[in-house]
Design a protein around this nucleic acid. Sequence first.
DNA 1: GCCAACGTTGGC
DNA 2: GCCAACGTTGGC
Length: 152
Amino acid sequence: MHAWLMKSEPDECAIDDVLAAPKHRTPWSGVRNYQARNFMRDTMRVGDGVLFYHSSCAEPGIAGLAEIATAAYPDPTQFDGQSPYYDPKSTPSAPRWFCVDVRALRKTRLVPVSELRAHPSLAKLWTLRPGNRLSITPVSATEWKFICGKLL
DNA sequence: GCCAACGTTGGC
DNA sequence: GCCAACGTTGGC
């Protein structure tokens, strides 16, 4: 199993919103970064663990636990001319962008990014790398166990 | 709202 | 295929 940290702006989609949704699921659409797309398309598997992270907000940090609910499929928003994520260069026969569905499992206490940074065990956590801007980053098995076992 | 870091774009 | 300009991210 792989594990991931996935960033969402709580103004757009908070952990509570996903927990309130049918089947506790939401499509992770709108990713327009090739590296993040490749993670979803090539490496994610159903059942992978997800740290649900709130970003660009008053209290950025881990806010919940989730899991990958589907394999990657073409992101429908890329074909929707009304969507802010519309991509005129993408076609249904050769879709450029993919998404997965994420199922929220539970809300956790808010673990602030400052607390993550303070733990030597998490010194190599991808999302904490200087200048990191990826919204989807891998979490190692060791990091996953540490976070789930000690921090949540 | 600032700003550093980074990815993408497009002219050449 | 280089690289400057631009837009975006995201913590502070």
